[in-house]
Write a protein that binds this DNA or RNA. Structure first.
Lengths: 184, 184
DNA sequence: GCAAATTAATGATTTATTCAAG
DNA sequence: CTTGAATAAATCATTAATTTGC
C-alpha cells in the first residue's frame, strides 16, 4: 500500500476558518447535537466527523487557556519581582523551625512564592496547615464567636446602615478578589 | 494621571492562593483574631489589611453559594434540553434555503469557499451566524453549556437513542479521514 | 532549489479532578 | 463514601514549517 492515507483529520482552510469564527463567537463546549450540526455543515468542505469537531474544541479551548496562563504568570512574575525589590521585610512568617504532626512531607521552613506554585498536594497540605498554625482552628483562643467586627472598616460602620460601598459587593458585578488567575 | 494608586486592595497571586486554600480547608467566617493572624502572615506577600481579608471571605462565600445555585439551575436546564434533544432528528444542510432575521446583508444560500475568503466583516458575521443558525446559541455568559460525551470516540460508548440520519461511524474508534482536498 | 533534519503545531488519547447523585 | 458523568490537564503522535548542508 503506497498510499498511507493520513491517519488523522486535516481540516481544510474553510473548516478551520469556520471553527475559529465559532470559537471567537463564544462556542466552547458544544454538546452532542451541536457537534452533529457543525459536523454536518462542515462536511461540505471536506471529510470530517463528529469526534474531530469535539477534539478541535477541546484542544483549542485548552490551548487558549494555556496561552493565557503563560501570559498571566509571566506578568505576575514581573509584578512579584517588582514587589520584592520594594519591600524586604520578612519579619513575619516564622515558619522556619516549626514542626507539627502535619509534617509528613517536606514542608518548607520559609514559604516561598515558588513553593506555592508546586503541586496540588502541597497546596492542600498547606491549606490545612495554614488553618492549624495560623488560626489554631480546633482549640479556640477564647475570643471567637464566629464574628469579626473589629476587622471591618471601622470608619463608617454602623450596625445596620449596611452597604457602605464596600459591603455591597456581595452580589454586584465587580470582581474584587481577582487580579489574577481564576481557579477553575 | 499617571499614578492612580489603586484605591482598592489587589491580592497577589500568593495571597489569593493561600486564601483559597484556607477556604477550601473550611475557613468561612474567621473571627477577629483569626483575621489578624491571616493578615499578618499574608502581608509578607504584599500590602493587605484586615478588612481585605474580612471582605474576601464574605465575598468568596457568597459567590460560592451563587455559583452553586447557578450550576444547579443549569443542570436542571440541561436535563430538560436533553429530553427535547432526543426527539428531534437533525436535518443536514438546511442552509441552502434558510431564511432568518439575520439576513440583512446578502448571505449566500450556499456558503462557498470563495465566500469565506472575502472580508473580515463577512467572516465575523458568519461566525455569529453559524452559531445562531446551526446551534441556536442563546449564549448568556459565553461559557460552556451542555456536554458532548457521545461524540467522543470512547470505547464502549453508545449514542443515546437519537437515530441520527446523517452519521454512521460517528462514535466508532476507527482511525479516519485522509485529508480531503481543499481549494488552495 | 531540494531534501534530510529539526522544530513547532495540533489532532488524538489517556489520566486526573470536580461535582453532584445515590 | 462511593460512583457516574463531564471535562480539564497532561501526554502521545503525526503532520506542517523551518532550518540546514549540499
Amino acid at each position: 500500500m503506497p498510499q498511507v492515507p493520513s491517519t488523522r483529520w486535516c481540516p481544510t482552510p474553510e473548516q478551520l476558518m469556520i471553527l475559529e469564527e465559532m470559537y471567537r463567537s463564544g462556542v466552547r463546549t458544544p454538546n452532542a447535537a451541536q457537534i452533529q450540526q457543525i459536523t454536518a455543515h462542515l462536511s461540505y468542505y471536506g471529510k470530517i466527523e463528529g469526534k474531530n469537531v469535539f477534539y478541535w474544541f477541546q484542544n483549542h479551548k485548552a490551548r487558549d487557556r494555556q496561552k493565557l496562563r503563560r501570559r498571566l504568570s509571566r506578568h505576575q512574575q514581573m509584578l512579584q519581582q517588582h514587589q520584592m525589590m520594594n519591600q524586604q521585610a520578612p519579619q513575619l512568617h516564622q515558619m522556619e523551625t516549626f514542626r507539627s504532626p502535619l509534617q509528613q512531607h517536606q514542608i518548607p521552613h520559609q514559604i516561598t512564592p515558588q513553593f506555592l506554585q508546586q503541586g496540588r498536594w502541597h497546596r492542600e497540605a498547606l491549606g490545612r496547615m495554614f488553618c492549624e498554625l495560623w488560626l489554631r482552628v480546633d482549640d479556640g483562643d477564647g475570643s471567637e464567636f464566629g464574628c469579626s467586627p473589629c476587622c471591618r472598616p471601622l470608619k463608617t460602620l454602623e450596625l445596620f446602615p449596611t452597604q457602605s460601598t464596600g459591603l455591597k459587593e456581595e452580589c454586584s458585578t465587580s470582581k474584587s478578589s481577582s487580579c489574577s488567575t481564576s481557579t477553575n
